[in-house]
Design a protein around this nucleic acid. Structure first.
Length: 549
RNA sequence: GCCCCUGUAGCUCAGCUGGAUAGAGCAGCGGCCUUCUAAGCCGCAGGUCCCAGGUUCGAAUCCUGGCGGGGGCACCA
């Protein structure tokens, strides 16, 4: 999928000028791998490019000589926009853009507002993001909460980059675990202990109390009622997390009808000779598609496996017209990735049309001590416990701020802290401050959009930070990495704080004040968008409600 | 045994499809509230980027081999 930012934003135009200057300097070379980025610690200027280093070999010349020509070409193309282009180090070209370029660039960000960084994927894809999909036999716990935050934020990113996104929760309501749930609830309703291997948590007793006549109803009816209650509770909990699913897909529907979806899928794979019988069971030859062993579809007992349902389910998603399926799974399911991919292809899916994202674990810590995950069997920290404790904003931030590929140590003491020590409040505070300045300026009748004679370095740095956002969004979406947005937002909040410190708005000379107001408005909008992509609120004010810190 | 993730500052982590003197938050030390929110700001200190080879003008980043941590390898869901 490509989701390139607008071709006409200031950075894209800079890259275009660079590409032209590079092609002119080394006609035989390909400068497309060259970077244009903020310089590293050793460099000066606003942007640095390694184009000359990339092109030195095809040019057959020392990099610094190539760099000189590129610098000259850029100067010729950019005119007043370019303050200087210096060759440095082994052959970098360091660019310093003029204040005028920054002012013009900001006005583009400001006029895009919250749409800054929005993409138009080409082509737009119909994407099905399936996430959480926790078994309806118990509450959603912390791992599922991370999965929820990630899946939702990924969906937001994919939508913002121009795709048609569908959020889906798969309810495993057809397996033997559901029967066990029914038995456990029924036992509790009769005042008995759940059976061996049954569900032990307090919620089982709550279910028993909420299902009229549970003690005497048939187990399958109790089970059905219990699943319905658990699903409703999951829906409520997820809504508290600001997550709304488009579809709650029930596994049992795959077994309804004649032939059922599962039956049709088995028959189709059979027709293609991709299944075989052995030891009284029906197997899928997943080894033909990269799995390390073949897998059972139908047990010798005649019952299908969950795997058979999964295959039919993914087939169903394709049949509903999605171009791309993304499944977000917990770490404990990574062993199923190869077989699912193999089965997906065996059942006619295009390689690449199914992505399986594995979430690593969450460890809760409390001020350095490993928090107790389970006091006794059946008790664990749930989604509800977590957001009651630290709040939705902090929960989403801390679960999203790190790569899904890494295990999280979530410090509850830090996340609970409503103070400067907590990064999520820091970012929200930057947003609130921007709002506060704008509100005050509006009261005093100041207007945004001036052209000051010169800019402060903090203003320039903040403008460039905002200009990064479209690339950051595209990268985060393409790499399925929402944590990049959190990293960017923190850096942007820091840049805004520097600007706030160095550049008073109210009381500044009119053109200066007008420019700074525009910068505040743009920062407010882009920060709000970044927070929204994470599902974190962007408050307009954060008045302290107590002075004790 | 095989598979996946991971090893970067005291702690938690960014950076990883190669770029210059490796960053942030927290913790530590020292400063800053008659000024648009001190839920803030400034400064200091803090590193064999797990180890060893290799590729490259250039490696935290790529390759190979080790070592450590976590998770997973059902006719369970």
């Amino acid at each position: 999928m490509s989701s390139s930012p607008s071709q006409t934003d200031p950075l894209s135009r800079l890259r275009e000028a660079l590409a032209e200057a590079a092609a002119e300097a080394v006609p035989a070379g390909d400068a497309s791998p060259a970077t244009l980025e903020p310089p590293g610690a050793g460099g000066e200027g606003d942007y640095a490019t390694n184009a000359a280093l990339v092109l030195a070999k095809p040019a057959g010349e020392p990099p610094r000589e190539v760099a000189e020509r590129i610098a000259a070409g850029l100067s010729a193309r950019l005119g007043d926009e370019l303050e200087s282009a210096q060759v440095a180090g082994p052959g970098f070209v360091n660019l310093t853009l003029s204040d005028g370029w920054h002012v013009a660039a900001l006005s583009e960000v400001a006029s895009a507002g919250q749409g800054w960084g929005a993409g138009s994927a080409d082509p737009p894809l119909r994407v099905n993001v399936e996430f959480v999909s926790a078994n309806p036999t118990g509450p959603i716990h912390v791992g599922g909460t991370r999965n929820a935050a990630y899946g939702d934020s990924l969906a937001r990113l994919l939508a913002f980059t121009g795709n048609d996104v569908h959020r889906e929760f798969y309810v495993n309501d057809a397996g033997s675990q559901v029967v066990v749930l029914g038995e456990s609830v029924k036992a509790r309703a009769r005042g008995e202990e759940p059976p061996e291997g049954g569900y032990q948590g307090d919620y089982v007793e709550a279910l028993a109390a909420d299902i009229p006549g549970a003690a005497d109803l048939p187990v399958d009816e109790v089970a059905r009622a219990a699943v319905a209650l658990m699903v409703a509770e999951a829906e409520r909990s997820l809504a508290r997390m600001r997550i709304v699913f488009d579809d709650w897909f029930h596994e049992h529907t795959l077994h309804e009808g004649e032939p059922s979806a599962v039956g049709r899928s088995l028959a189709a794979m059979g027709d293609q000779d991709r299944t075989f019988e052995e030891d009284g069971a029906l197997w899928l030859r997943t080894t033909a598609f990269g799995d390390d062993k073949d897998r059972v579809l139908m047990r010798s007992s005649g019952e299908h496996t969950y795997f058979a349902s999964d295959i039919a389910y993914h087939r169903d998603k394709l049949d509903r017209g999605f171009d791309l399926l993304i499944d977000v799974w917990g770490a404990d399911h990574h062993g199923y990735v190869d077989r699912m991919q193999a089965a997906f292809e065996a059942s006619g899916g295009e390689p690449g049309a199914l992505e399986l994202v594995i979430m690593q674990l969450v460890h809760l810590v409390e001020g350095g001590e490993r928090a107790k995950m389970s006091k006794r069997a059946g008790e664990f920290v749930t989604l509800e416990d977590l957001i009651d404790d630290i709040g939705v904003d902090a929960a989403r931030w801390f679960l999203l701020a790190r790569s899904h590929e890494t295990t999280i140590e979530l410090d509850l003491a830090l996340a609970r802290e409503q103070s400067s020590e907590n990064p999520v409040y820091y970012v929200q505070y930057a947003h609130a401050r921007a709002c506060s300045i704008l509100e005050r300026a509006a009261r005093e009748g100041q207007e945004a959009g001036g052209k000051p004679a010169s800019l402060h370095p903090s203003e320039r740095a903040l403008v460039r930070r905002l200009l990064e956002f479209p690339d950051e969004v595209a990268e985060a979406a393409a790499r399925r990495a929402p944590h990049r947005i959190a990293t960017w937002a923190l850096a942007a909040a820091q840049d805004f704080s520097a600007f706030y410190r160095d550049c008073p708005v109210v009381g500044a000379e009119p053109d200066v004040a007008a420019f700074r107001l525009e910068l505040c408005a743009a920062t407010r909008d882009v920060l709000a968008r970044a927070l929204d992509l994470l599902g974190v609120t962007a408050p307009e004010s954060m008045e302290r409600d107590d002075q004790i810190r």
